[in-house]
Amino acid sequence: HPTISSHAWTDDSGSIAVTYHLALTAPGHGDTLWNSSSCIAEHLLRPHLRDRMFGPRAKEAGGVTRWPPRRALEFGAGAALPSMILLREGAGTVVMTDRITNEETFEALEMSSEKNCRRWDISEEERERRAVVRAHTWGEDAEKLLEAGG
């Protein structure tokens, strides 16, 4: 693809590989992998890091009480490493969003979802059900995201 780059990410243990794509024309550093994205992906993979990330009060505050989550939503996904890890972990529905700048941003998300699901033996039928890509810019009505999450 002329304006979408392909990359490989590997977790700290070196055992889990994720392919991610970036739209080279995305503004606002959307064309780079953010450290926080990699850091969250790593934290989602390890139970002790998950506990630390969600905090001791997560449960009483109505936060994550089950793993994998039934429905997850990533804002400003970009490379969408956390969403890819959530698909691998078995989250029911993963909604990936990014703001509307160009079509490539969403193509890149679909490409990542396709490649990684194939690698993890998630059928195309299952992927279409579980991995949802939606455009979302701050301030827009969130109703469509709630619908996308089922």
């Binding site: 994205s37 969250i40 039934r70 804002f75 400003g76 701050w138």
Partner: peptide
């Protein structure tokens, strides 16, 4: 949603509350 992810400056507490 059981889980919301926002990697960095995009985090917005208003959304967090509205969507949970």
């Amino acid at each position: 949603f059981d889980l919301l992810v926002a990697s960095d400056c995009i985090y917005n507490p208003t959304y967090h509350e509205a969507l949970l």
